[in-house]
Design a protein around this nucleic acid. Structure first.
Ligand SMILES: [Zn+2]
Ligand SMILES: [Zn+2]
Ligand SMILES: [Zn+2]
Ligand SMILES: [Zn+2]
Lengths: 169, 169
DNA sequence: CATAAACCTAAGTGTAACACCTAGGTCAAC
DNA sequence: GTTGACCTAGGTGTTACACTTAGGTTTATG
């Protein structure tokens, strides 16, 4: 199977397949004649795993770590269980952050609704914003939504598991 | 005021102040002697606006567009109202995405709880993942959470408002 | 006054996970 | 043989900063 075939088969894009290949998650066979990449059933299985894991909120790095186990014929279950629990904590936080921001925005829209437009003065850039300028540092900007995930990500499993070793050193 | 002073005064970081300065949102005075940047009350007011807007879910680009108005002594209210409504739609989607993902993850954890660990075989990398491999393409991976915002962002106000012009051409 | 701690600058790098674009080679069909 | 569909590697863009580097400055202290 060539990239586009595989991509269509698993409902993703050729670029995504190439990306996973580039970062070493997929290992296609490379034709010596034309350089084309070919993916067999095993690689399709890997891609399927990746997509399912991403779908469940795993990061690409998580998946790399899991493959590091399974490629050495170790069970990946332990990691899978640990990771999803950690990611759940993060998604719950995103959920709460989104909810809080949502409510704040609705409140703003409501309060602004009965206020007129105004031209900026030396005292105020926009009196609408001014309405909310006092309540700072309650919720860290919007970043919590996009960054909460990436922050604590690396730590889960980058610590080599209890003394056991893998073939590839 | 020097960077760190301003940053502390408004409960942010010096790096953040430098960032906003670099991209042209803040216009400090630069000392000819030592190159130090100095921020007066007006600039502090600008920073305050920025932080409040970010806090309410506005993007930096949104803020740039708003300043493009207010710096020309036009009202920013219109844009402010339009933008927050659009951002609210996006945050609501993030909220729903997070909720859906949250439930899916909880479901996974629940189902996996009474399943044993297994070593990978040629048929399956991880039978836990297999449990969820069928239900694809219901929710686009995790990306919706991080990318939903950035996707439709640029369009609001990059279209020059009905024929009116600003001084700086 | 010498020197160290604290502060400043610009410029570069890293972050997550791809999407998109470029330039150029390949393959199938008509 | 030529067009259109497909492939490659490599580079860029996305968001909003945090962090690091290398080096100059200011302030406090002995
Ligand atoms: Zn192991
Ligand atoms: Zn497993
Ligand atoms: Zn205008
Ligand atoms: Zn206004």
């Amino acid at each position: 199977m060539k990239v586009s075939n595989l991509a269509k088969a698993l409902n993703t894009t050729a670029d995504t397949v190439r990306y996973y290949t580039k970062i070493g998650l997929l290992h296609p066979q490379k034709s010596q004649l034309n350089g084309y990449m070919f993916y067999n059933a095993q690689q399709q299985q890997r891609l399927s795993f990746i997509l399912t894991a991403r779908h469940l909120g795993f990061s690409v790095k998580d998946i790399t770590n899991i493959f590091h186990e399974t490629d050495n014929n170790h069970t990946g279950c332990k990691l899978v269980r640990d990771i999803i629990k950690q990611r759940l904590v993060e998604v719950e936080q995103q959920f709460l952050d989104a909810q809080a921001l949502m409510n704040l925005m609705k409140q703003a829209i409501g309060e602004w609704d009965h206020l007129p437009d105004k031209t900026p003065t030396s005292q105020s850039i926009c009196h609408l914003m001014d309405t909310f300028s006092a309540m700072q540092s309650q919720i860290p900007p919007t970043k919590s939504l996009t960054e909460t995930l990436s922050s604590t990500k690396a730590n889960l499993a980058e610590t080599e598991h209890n003394g056991e070793m893998h073939e590839n050193k």
